[in-house]
């Protein structure tokens, strides 16, 4: 137990050593998380756009009977 407290006291330099390490972790993890979130966001938007692009192309083909299911798309879009 004493060993553990001694370790955390860092020979009296705890106030300087631990914030240094904490800041290292915060900056490195923060940058990584920001990068990952940006990547995920962009991947999702790209997937959405591509899905919509595919739909648009389909719609340009010989149109199915427009009266068949008028609300189909909006209904699908709802969660």
């Amino acid at each position: 137990m004493e060993e553990i407290t001694a370790f955390f006291e860092m020979g009296g330099y705890a106030v300087y050593v631990w914030p240094s390490l904490a800041l290292t972790v915060v900056i490195m993890a923060g940058l990584l998380i920001a990068t990952l979130r940006q990547l995920r966001n962009r991947q999702r938007r790209l997937a959405e756009l591509e899905a919509r692009g595919v739909q648009r192309q389909r719609r340009q083909r010989p149109a199915p009977d427009p009266t068949a299911q008028p609300g189909a798309e909006t209904r699908e879009a709802r969660p």
């Binding site: 990068t35 940006q38 962009r42 756009l49 591509e50 692009g53």
Partner: peptide, 20 residues
């Protein structure tokens, strides 16, 4: 690691701009 992820992200951003 971070640079590879960021480059990937930038490539997707470029594609998004092109699609827009």
């Amino acid at each position: 690691t971070v640079v590879l992820l960021r480059i990937k992200s930038e490539l997707i951003a470029a594609r998004l701009r092109a699609l827009d």
